[in-house]
Design a protein around this nucleic acid. Structure first.
Lengths: 179, 179
DNA sequence: AACTAATATGCACATTAGTGCATAATACAT
DNA sequence: ATGTATTATGCACTAATGTGCATATTAGTT
């Protein structure tokens, strides 16, 4: 149920519409907890029903009205209680590694392409993280909240670097097998 | 739907019962695709319905009969078709990073404990991977299938090492904030 | 004697996530 | 004119995952 908490955490910063939240889940907090816009709207409805956020419609002309959600005191209590509860290990589900595991039943040329595509995807992630770090964190005086985000971001960066290195090595190893 | 394929991949090695498969998902292939025993039995029923595996009951005395599943030709075709399809990026969902992201709304002492617990869990994983590598792969002549498994395992090992290093650094950074 | 682990299978229910679609207006490019 | 992107919300259906329970026997432990 940590999508609820992730949304509440975003709303501790400032009130936001579902659309704002969906964008946030495509960027910053989405690096650590992925969610689609449908998931976000659905969960917002539940949070509203439970009284953990308050929603008010803001009229706009030309486009649909914004519905802006504000965290309530009850919502803040939920966030604090959640912070004390133990975390689960993220569940591993990586088809690419399953394909390596099943090497004998897989087209090696295709698998190499897939490894290279994956490497590029991680390079793109690394670049995105580094841009954010340079733009918002490097050489700045940081609040405690920002320092926490920087620690998470730094972990993301070092992880992407290592994954890229490991994937490049995997392609080399695969080449040695295929000959 | 890659649980189906992961099971089929296991069955290309040898026919197995649901129980055998569940154990395999607690160890080897489960390092790359996690699944509970309930999931395995449910998926086996579906695979049987689709004619991708054939199941026969083997009588045992004292304990429930084993139902041993063998991959069919149709099943092997599915595995090959799957190997050609592009892979998705694994979906990120890590509460611990969300808590770092939400540092201002979190108990820092508790978070440090959670980071340390997570570090220990990754150390345990690393040890398990290394034992398997030493026992089954180091200094042995390997088939192509085994070489694929070794590449996946090597990626797992380097990833665990990096995650441990990054978590240790995160605890240090957190200490500097907290004072 | 009672408890625990291992072997072996699975159902029922609840929660979570993903896919596809629907609506509606503006702005900008082709 | 037509298409595409952006802003903005959300439903309906399907698929995947997790939780709790149920059954049944043997072997070993406290």
């Amino acid at each position: 149920m940590a999508l609820a908490e992730a949304i509440l955490v975003c709303l501790t910063d400032r009130p936001m519409s579902g659309y704002d939240l969906a964008k946030t889940f495509d960027a910053s907090i989405g690096f650590f907890w992925r969610a689609s816009h449908q998931q976000v709207y659905r969960e917002l409805a539940r949070l509203r029903d439970k009284g953990l956020v308050e929603s008010k419609e803001i009229e706009q002309s030309g486009r649909p009205n914004r519905i802006v959600h504000t965290i309530t005191e009850a919502g803040e209590k939920i966030v604090h209680a959640w912070s004390l509860k133990p975390c689960r290990m993220p569940s591993v589900k990586d088809e690419l590694l399953v394909k390596l595991y099943a090497l004998d039943h897989v087209d090696i040329a295709v698998l190499r392409e897939q490894l290279e595509l994956r490497t590029d995807q991680h390079r793109a992630k690394l670049t995105a993280y580094q841009r954010i770090k340079e733009k918002f964190y490097d050489g700045k005086t940081l609040s405690r909240a920002q320092k926490g985000k920087l620690i998470a971001l730094t972990m993301g960066i070092s992880n992407e670097r290592e994954v890229i290195r490991a994937l490049e090595q995997a392609v080399i190893s695969l080449g040695e097998i295929d000959g």
